[in-house]
Each structure stands twice: as structure tokens, then as C-alpha cells.
């Protein structure tokens, strides 16, 4: 393996990790407020579909992205309404959302195909790479880090932003408090319901952006179930990242590198069982769950509905 193959593998790993990063950051925010998000897969999928559909109809990438975000926000709102206001089971609602969206997007995509609006060769516009002046001309590093689309740079920025939000702002600390003990937070005058609603909506928006990343930057087309379990992998990212923003970034890069390795090995025609490489993220996550990489502790109130007296 020479240097340029290595550089393209690293660059590819980053590209593959970004959808995971978006979805995982979205999941993380809601997890931190004490609510499970098992609907990441569905939220990504709606983003992927609506992003594609928006661009297909309007030819504008921005409108595509906006449509995706609205779809994700609505699903976040639904999740919040059922879990926060109605106290419904947080896990089951996520699974319900996944099923609903898998069906809904598949349904409309097939209609698009039947009507001839979309065919196998349909490609939409995509966010092109932005070469950062000077830095992108650096040998090796330029290729890896400084030739990505704006959504990639934005994702890294979000990690910094969310980290700052969690630990340095009043609202962020309030959100963490809600996730640890909603009762205490409530008596301290924090509006638990409002925080969880907002967290759920942001969660949906970020996950949908991760999904839109797939259709608007990588493949420029949609296919049924295009997310193919990435929402679940994002869940693994959160845990392997030990429920922290920087950890989430690190974990998505590790998993992205794994995905990139699978592709790279296939391109190079290396005969090793792909499934073994594909298993790694799950093995790593189970290892993290049983405490191999140190104690992984989720928010104390995770999964417990809060009922205001």
C-alpha cells in the first residue's frame, strides 16, 4: 500500500464517517436529555429521501437539504410528543418510526419510479468539494483533510459547538441535568418537557442531515433502504464514543475507517472475508458496553419517562 492509496483511504474514511457522525450527534443530544432515540435509522432515511426528492423537483441543493431537515424535525417532534407528553415506550416508538419511514419512503420512491420521474440512471446534483486555499495543496494532508464538501466541515464544527454547549452554557448544563435527574432539574426550575422536545427536534434534524449527506454528496441518487443500518451503527458510535461529543467524533472516524477498509479491500481485490471486517464495529461496541475501554456511563435517567406532579 503506497502513500496515495493510504491518503485516499483516509479521505474516504472521513467521507464515510460523516453521516454516522451527524446521526450520532443527533442521538447523543437526545440521549443526554434522558430519552432514547431508536428512530435514528428512520430519521436518516427520511432525510436521505426528502433531500433527494427536494433536489429532484427543485434542482436546488439547499431546498433539498431544507426539506430533509424539515422531515427530520417532524419525526423528532413526533418522538417527543409520544415519549415526553404521553410517556409512551421510548424504544418501541423508535422502532415504529423506523418501520413507518422504511415503508413510506419505499412507497413513494416506487411511485416515482413507476411514473418514470426516476430511473436507474437518474442522478441529482451534489454538494461539491471545497478545496481550502493553501491547505488543500499540502502533500498527503491536503488530500485527506482539506478537500471535502461543506457538510463535512460543518459536522466537525458541530462537534466543537455541541461540546461547548454541553459543558459551558447554562442551557447545556440544564440539558445534562435533565438527563441525570429530571426531578431535581424540575425543582430547580428547568422546564424538563421543553428541553426534551427541543433535544428531540434537533436530534431529528441532525439525523436527517446525516441521511441527506448520503444522497446529496455521496451517491447522488436514492434507493430503497439506502441507510442500510447506519442509524443503528450511529447508536454504536454514541456508546463507543462514551456519550461525549469528541468521543463520538473519534468513534465515527474509527467506524468510517472500517467501512472504508471494506471498500478499499474490495477494490484491491484482497481475498479476506469482508464480513469479519464488517463485524468489527459491533464487536468494539460490545467491548465498550462491557467496560473494556473504561466505564461507559449513559445518563442516569435514560429511558425513564418524567411525569410532572
Amino acid at each position: 500500500m503506497n502513500l496515495s492509496t493510504l491518503a485516499s483511504w483516509f479521505a474516504m474514511s472521513i467521507r464515510l464517517s460523516i453521516p454516522l457522525l451527524y446521526a450520532a450527534l443527533g442521538g447523543l443530544i437526545l440521549f443526554k436529555s434522558g430519552v432514547f432515540n431508536m428512530g435514528l435509522e428512520g430519521m436518516m432515511l427520511i432525510g436521505a429521501f426528502l433531500g433527494f426528492y427536494g433536489v429532484l423537483v427543485t434542482d436546488s441543493l439547499w431546498i433539498g437539504l431544507l426539506t430533509a431537515i424539515i422531515g427530520g424535525a417532524l419525526l423528532g417532534l413526533l418522538l417527543a410528543y409520544v415519549t415526553v407528553s404521553l410517556g409512551g415506550n421510548q424504544l418501541v416508538i423508535g422502532l415504529g418510526i423506523n418501520f413507518f419511514i422504511l415503508g413510506l419512503t419505499g412507497f413513494f420512491f416506487r411511485l416515482l419510479c413507476n411514473s418514470g420521474l426516476v430511473s436507474d440512471t437518474t442522478r441529482i446534483a451534489n454538494f461539491s468539494s471545497i478545496n481550502i486555499p493553501f491547505l488543500s495543496t499540502l502533500p498527503f494532508l491536503g488530500e485527506i483533510f482539506f478537500k471535502h464538501n461543506f457538510l463535512t466541515y460543518l459536522a466537525i464544527l458541530l462537534v466543537i459547538l455541541i461540546n461547548w454547549f454541553f459543558y459551558k452554557t447554562t442551557y447545556g448544563l440544564g440539558l445534562l441535568a435533565v438527563g441525570e435527574s429530571p426531578e431535581t432539574a424540575n425543582s430547580a426550575g428547568i422546564n424538563v418537557y421543553l428541553i426534551r422536545y427541543i433535544a428531540a427536534i434537533i436530534s431529528g434534524i441532525l439525523a436527517a442531515t446525516g441521511g441527506a449527506f448520503l444522497t446529496l454528496t455521496q451517491v447522488t441518487r436514492f434507493s430503497e433502504n439506502i441507510t442500510d443500518g447506519r442509524g443503528w451503527l450511529a447508536l454504536a458510535v454514541i456508546i463507543f464514543g462514551k456519550y461525549t461529543p469528541w468521543g463520538t467524533l473519534g468513534a465515527s472516524l474509527v467506524f468510517g475507517a472500517g467501512l472504508g477498509l471494506v471498500l478499499q479491500l474490495q477494490v484491491l481485490g484482497v481475498k479476506i472475508p469482508i464480513q469479519i471486517v464488517q463485524m468489527l464495529p459491533y464487536v468494539l461496541t460490545i467491548a465498550a458496553l462491557i467496560g473494556v475501554v473504561g466505564k461507559v456511563r449513559g445518563p442516569s435517567a435514560l429511558g425513564r419517562p418524567f411525569v410532572k406532579d
Binding site: 415506550n89 418501541v92 415504529g96 423506523n98 413507518f100 422504511l102 413507476n114
Partner: peptide, 27 residues
Amino acid sequence: VGVPLPISWAIEGIIMILVTASEYLSN
């Protein structure tokens, strides 16, 4: 009649969402 197959998942998903949402009622 040309109804796309994934409709069954959509319907099942809606059932799951509705039943979960109605939990508070039955509780």
C-alpha cells in the same frame, strides 16, 4: 392494482406508533 409493496411496513409502523402513543390511555 399497482400499490407499491412497502405500504405494509408503513401501516405496521403507524400501528406501532399509535399503540405506543395510546399507552398512557390504557395505563
